[in-house]
């Protein structure tokens, strides 16, 4: 059952059926709800506060307030949700400040949250997220930055100037999600053919597939099989 408060209750779309397996009492947030909506208040705990203070000092309080929309500490990992226009300032400080030293961009990936933050697909919602995993080899720490943009205006500044390794990562995120990284030296498709239409890893792009006959039964393609929410 979908409700307006961003939570779903029960399994199989049934509630109040006397399901004793435990699945009936299950409560979960809407797709992307937990990561897209929640935030953590200070103190974050451990070294999270330390690097946050250093970061505020490095970029200035006003810039930090404008740049970092929310901070989420979950499962021992810290995520800074960043406004895209301030991303270059932030990563430059994160890499170069003596007390931060996030020298390595471990990973850059796109995520399509589709109906993040609500039950319907709404134009203008920042459904496309770019997730940066930064590693400090000096201090052996990892943090995550997340930038969210809409599908109508999917522009994010490129970080290739600060982290040259972002080159192929950003091309992959463009190829799969259609996120445009402004300032990338040559933003072209990398895994799909150059003339491919659409962005395959967006949630509204079908998986594809054909029915398969096996032992006299026809098995439908995976994306049309019965699914359990």
């Amino acid at each position: 059952m979908t409700s307006d408060d961003g939570f779903r209750r029960g399994a199989f779309g049934v509630s109040g059926s006397g399901d004793t397996s435990g699945f009936g009492g299950l409560v979960r947030v809407e797709p992307g709800g937990a990561v897209a909506l929640h935030s953590t208040d200070r103190p974050y705990g451990g070294w999270f506060d330390e690097i946050t203070d250093v970061l505020i000092e490095a970029v200035g309080e006003a810039t930090y307030a404008a740049a970092v929309q929310r901070v989420l500490v979950d499962r021992g990992e810290i995520t800074y949700f960043v406004a895209r226009e301030h991303l270059p300032t932030l990563v430059q400080a994160l890499r170069d400040d003596d007390a931060l030293r996030f020298e390595l961009l471990s990973s850059l990936s796109g995520v399509d949250y589709l109906d993040s933050g609500g039950p319907e697909v709404t134009p203008g919602r920042p459904r496309l997220h770019v997730v940066y995993h930064l590693t400090s080899m000096t201090y052996r720490r990892r943090i995550r930055l997340e930038v969210a943009v809409t599908a109508e205006d999917p522009h994010v500044p490129s970080v290739t100037g600060v982290y040259p390794t972002a080159d192929w990562h950003e091309r992959e995120a463009y190829d799969m999600f259609g996120i445009v990284f402004d300032g990338h030296p040559s933003l072209t498709r990398i895994l799909m053919p150059d003339d491919w239409d659409g962005f395959p890893q967006r949630k509204d792009y079908p998986l594809g597939g054909v029915p398969v006959e096996y032992h006299d039964a026809t098995i439908p393609p995976p994306d049309t099989r019965r699914a359990y929410r």
Binding site: V29, E30, A34, V35, S106, R142
Partner: peptide, 24 residues
């Protein structure tokens, strides 16, 4: 629901898994 990044040292270097769950 949530997201994690878990790296392991594969024979070729850092093999990282960024996995996002929506609770399903």
């Amino acid at each position: 629901a949530g997201q994690v990044y878990v790296p392991v040292e594969s024979p070729r270097g850092e093999l990282g898994y960024h996995v996002v769950s929506d609770g399903s």
